[in-house]
Amino acid sequence: MPNSPKMTRRQFVTVIGAGLSAIMGTIVGLPAIGYLLSPALEKQKGESWIPLGALEKYPLNQPTLFTFTRAKKHGWEKTVTSYGVFVLRTSETQVRVFSNVCTHLSCRVNWKEEVQEYVCPCHDGHFAIDGAIVSGPQPRPLDEYQTKIEDGNLFIFLKEA
């Protein structure tokens, strides 16, 4: 349109140029935002039922340590975390499961048969067989897991931070 009264050639090129730039900027720019936010938008599945095997293999009234590991994926890298829990079977069908992580500063507690207490080696925290505080600097009893029994097998519900 060389003689168009409405728009000069220069204006036309300017408008088309700006329009194309805006479209290309959007096509590249919007995905770029998604690209940067991507890891923050991934949901880590942090909850699961962990099988601890047949309930009957755990002795009555005798805390038994069970250890397992959980792998977590961060991008292309896997991090393996180990967990330890004390299984305390209180009757034929009843069971309580405690974390072996001391509630003071996260050291691992051990079951001491001779004193019938869990003892933390770091700052001498003592817990009773049911996880209650006996003595020491710890602020609260041992953490307890939610349990379920299916077909005679014990499961605990693990929530990962």
């Binding site: 590249v28 995905p31 998604g34 690209y35 991507s38 890891p39 991008g75």
Partner: peptide, 11 residues
Amino acid sequence: EVRFGWLIRGI
């Protein structure tokens, strides 16, 4: 796995 990662690397 990265959103639009294929696009950025493709370009």
